[in-house]
Nucleic acid binder design. Sequence first.
DNA 1: CGCTCGTTTCGCCACGCAGCGAAACATCCG
DNA 2: CGGATGTTTCGCTGCGTGGCGAAACGAGCG
Lengths: 230, 230
Amino acid sequence: MSRVELPNRYQLAEFGALLAEPARAAMLLVLLDGSARPAGELARVAGVGAATASAHLKRLLDGGLLAVQEQGRHRYYRLADDEVAAWLEAMALPRAPKAQRPAGSDPALCRARTCYRHLAGELGVAMCAAWLERGWLQSTGDGLRLRAPAVEALVEVGWQAQAAERLLRLRGRGCIDWTERRLHVGGPLGVALTDAMLDAGWLRRASRSRALLPSADGLRRFAQLGVRLD
Amino acid sequence: MSRVELPNRYQLAEFGALLAEPARAAMLLVLLDGSARPAGELARVAGVGAATASAHLKRLLDGGLLAVQEQGRHRYYRLADDEVAAWLEAMALPRAPKAQRPAGSDPALCRARTCYRHLAGELGVAMCAAWLERGWLQSTGDGLRLRAPAVEALVEVGWQAQAAERLLRLRGRGCIDWTERRLHVGGPLGVALTDAMLDAGWLRRASRSRALLPSADGLRRFAQLGVRLD
DNA sequence: CGCTCGTTTCGCCACGCAGCGAAACATCCG
DNA sequence: CGGATGTTTCGCTGCGTGGCGAAACGAGCG
């Protein structure tokens, strides 16, 4: 068939048009944390009526940026996949007016946050770098894979052996962190790691932002795993 | 003052709107190789009249995506900086309709190409990774820096000592390659390296695309510098 | 079964803006 | 100076689309 050419002007324009409306941008931004929200709530967030919101959601859906999940009389919308989330992060974060990143950005958010459903920010980048260096994490043709020594280390700091071993079977995606411009671990592996850290109380979700707040205990554990902030 | 919050909906929408027009998208895409072109040529590329093109260029200029350089009765437009180029790469490349990247993309382009003015693609990523691993390249707080051993190696494969040493003073920017999702060297250092490789005949620009074609000699030199393609 | 609530569809209006031609500038050249 | 060329400004028209209210649809619930 016709080979896929470079990004032609129409693909790029179509994508841009989907972002070009403040109402749609607001919806996408609020879904960037991986949540799934019903149409009505998204309408409220975007500040438009239900009818208008429905039209916007239809466009985003047709454009492949959203996926929908029906549940009773609600329809929950979420980002189509973490590929989309990565694009949005790339677009959204560095778009601070001019200055590179005036250090005014919320420091907690720079430190640790969710990107889609996995850990990002300085902490996420530091973890990825440290584990890659130790060989606990390896980049294969198949994506990022956790190695046995990492499992041992996790068990040593208190994780259940069975749960830790399950991580060996999960595939990670290298995901670019756009405040740090460096890799962190996304994909199923990244999500599983992050979930476990939340469960263990190492991290806590901030109430009104995507920031993740590390507990004192969490920081100690991270340090035991070779992960330090600055 | 008001701290810079996260990307608000308006910033994102404004950016999207700039891309949302096929004529503007075409202009941006053709400038993605770092070239500077006069308004008339961009009008031709975009397939619109001179008047229309002028209006589009004004919008892109006001939006901070382009810079202009007056020269006689011509006005040469180019991308504002490599930050913008990186955003565009991020938007444009992975925007193949659905399938991840159906391997139908131009193989030469995946192998090596210019990103703005520096080397990207498999070759660029491989070089960056190999040199980081050998310590020839180091990530400092200030960006990427070349180290002395790299200069020695470059001289050994035939570069002028003086030119090679100058590279030590140039700052590199980690630039994300969106076909590979991995780092390669951008910024002044990346540009200087790439220029030198073009001068030395290791690489040649393809006539009708952003692909860079490595010569047989070039591939041999790259191999001597620890850079191999698969 | 009939009411409620969440969502989508329909019909309508209004604004934004892309497009062009004509004209105004500006620069180079003879 | 005067004509040619490159670029921008101006005025205008037409289309796309965002917004809303009203109505339709469908799922829960008493």
